[in-house]
Structure formats: structure tokens, C-alpha cells
Amino acid sequence: MKLINKKNKKYIQVFQLFTEEEWTKSAKNYNKNISSFFSGKKYEIFIHTNEETVTYLIGLGKSTMQNFEIQQVAVKFSQIQKEKIQAVPTLVLADFLKEKQFEEFVKGLLLGTYSYPFDKKHSIWNPKFEIHFENLSQKKLDAIGTKSEALVNGQTACQEWLNKPANLKKPDILSSYLKNLAKKYDLKYTVFNRKKCEELGLGAYLSVNQGSAYDAAFTIIEYKTTVKNAKTFGLVGKCVLFDTGGISLKDHNNMHYMKSDMGGATAVIGTLIYAAEMQIPVNIIAILPITDNAISERAFLPSDVITAYNGKTIEVLNTDAEAG
């Protein structure tokens, strides 16, 4: 998607945004019957056509809306109109929008293209799709475009890993992905297997991993900026790819949700992608202790006493990975 500071005389497609207040002022310029179907309320869409142009009237709600609500509207619009939006230069009309609000609209259009499994078949990802918006300079539009795509790339990766079924995100599959991610963005990649974790004394982590058929993959990924004296942030994401609860088995009715027990890790992965693409002036050390919590003859048991990395001993009363 390209953002361009211009306005042509003719367009095949127009996105015209309205708050309720803006529609009240503008309704007189349209066929009076449209007001029976459209009033500018949040999420309202009216498709107005003539021989040359398809105009989408998009309702944002009250003028007192928060910026994130504009993103919500754009997400829903992008999702619902997926099959109708054309990959053509598109004029966005919204003189009342401030820079940050327009940015939220662009982000929403991109975020609304997501469905699992993700691909870029949505017309908004087509190189022929352009947004023409003359209210902001080209420099500002370029910055918004870069920032929005970086954020969406990070969030899409997060959603993709959360939504994958358990059989498609085993420890070795995620480890391979992270290794390739580090190579792509020039990140430092370190991984400790079960033997190395034992040497380091990562007892709490190993207790969860010991029932798994897969080797431990305690992963550290580092993003480093070229900016001198930059701050360093540590991010730790829970990365239990599937948490059965272990011997303290979870309720089977909701067990399928445990494919999302690595949500903390996905948030960290998304952050790394965004930081790398935007070249954020900070250092990040991300820790992703990859494992699953499975049941086997080696699984840890309630009443076990384990020794954590910091030297503290832990009596296990519940083998669920977050409760132990």
C-alpha cells in the first residue's frame, strides 16, 4: 500500500469518512434518501455509486471518539469489504482528521486484512492500491506508511503463531522460525538445549520440559541499536507451546485453548519485528523459554521439590506451568 499526497480529478474508488457531526453538516450535499441508511455512526457503511465512482461512506461515530476507535472502524471496514475493495488509487476524504487519527485509520485498514492462515491476497496489499490524501505532507505520509507496516508485520506474526494449531507449532518448528527471524533482521540468536540448561541450573524451566518428547530450547534473542548509550530493556515471554497442565491435568472442555499459552512469547516476537523494522534506538534482550508441558513417565509431579536458577527451592503443588 502506498500513501501519496495528491488528489486527481477522477477516481474509481473513494473512502469518505464522517463523524456524526460531520455528516449532519454534509448530508445536504447528498441524495436525501441516504440519511435513512447512514448517519455517521460508528461502523456504519453506505456504498454510493455512479457511472464512474464507488464511494464508501464510512461512519466513525461521535467527534469525541478516541483514536483507537478509528482503527477499530477501519479494521472492520477492511474485513467486511474485503471482496469489494479494488486495488486502485483511492481517494480518502476526511478534512477533519488529525495526523494521528489518519495513522490509526491506515493501521486499521492493514490490520483488517488478517485472517488465518495469513496471506497478502487482500487488495490493500496489492502494489496497485494507493491511498491519496492531500491533508498531510508526503514526508508525514511516508513515515505513517513505514510505521504502520512495521506494526502490522509484528502484530500479524503474533496472531499467526497464536492461531496455529498445536501440531504446527512444536518446539523445533518455532525454534527454526526464530533462527530465521534473527538472520533476517540481524539479531543475535542463542539457544540452550536440555543439557546446557542443566549445566546452568535452570531447574524450574526444566521441570516443565522434562515430560516433553522435545528437547529444551531456552532461546535468547538480542536486538542492538547503533545509538550510543541507549537504554536496554529485557523482555520475557511465556513460551509453553501447549500446556496440558501436566499431571495436574486441565479440564478437557477448554484444553484446546492451551495452544495459545505462548501468547507472551508472541508479543515479544512482534515487538522484536517492530523494533528491527523501525530501527528503534534501544537495546532489547528477549528471553523465550520454549517447551511444551506434556504428560509422560518423566513428567514432574506434585510434591516434587525443584531448584530454580536463582537458587530458590520450589515445592510443586500443581504441575500447571503457571501454577507450579
Score class of each variant (00 low, 15 high):
Ala308Gln: 05
Asn293Leu: 04
Ala166Cys: 13
Val208Trp: 01
Gln159Met: 05
Leu235Thr: 00
Thr225Tyr: 08
Glu149Ser: 13
Lys196Asn: 06
Asn33Asp: 15
Leu111Ser: 10
Gln79Pro: 11
Val268Phe: 00
Gly246Pro: 03
Glu222Arg: 10
Glu222Trp: 01
Met262Gly: 00
Lys28Met: 09
His132Asn: 14
Pro127Thr: 15
Thr113Glu: 15
Asn283His: 15
Met278Asp: 03
Ile273Asn: 01
Phe242Ser: 05
Leu181Gln: 00
Lys164Asp: 01
Leu151Thr: 06
Tyr274Lys: 03
Thr19His: 01
Leu272Phe: 00
Ile314Phe: 01
Gly59Ala: 06
Leu178Ile: 01
Gln86Cys: 11
Glu44Ala: 07
Tyr11Ser: 02
Phe242Ile: 02
Glu315Arg: 15
Lys62Cys: 10
Ala87Thr: 05
Glu52Asn: 13
Glu149Ile: 13
Ala323His: 07
Val75Cys: 01
Ile280Cys: 06
Asp215Arg: 08
Ala275Arg: 04
Ser63Leu: 13
Thr19Ile: 06
Asn180Cys: 00
Asn293Ile: 10
Ser296Val: 00
Tyr205Gly: 01
Ile4Asp: 13
Ala217Met: 04
Phe102Asn: 04
Val282Asn: 12
Glu160Asp: 07
His252Tyr: 07
Ile85Trp: 08
Lys76Met: 14
Tyr309Lys: 15
Gly40Gln: 02
Val106Asp: 00
Asn126Asp: 14
Gly201Cys: 12
Lys107His: 02
Thr49Val: 04
Asp172Arg: 05
Glu69Ser: 04
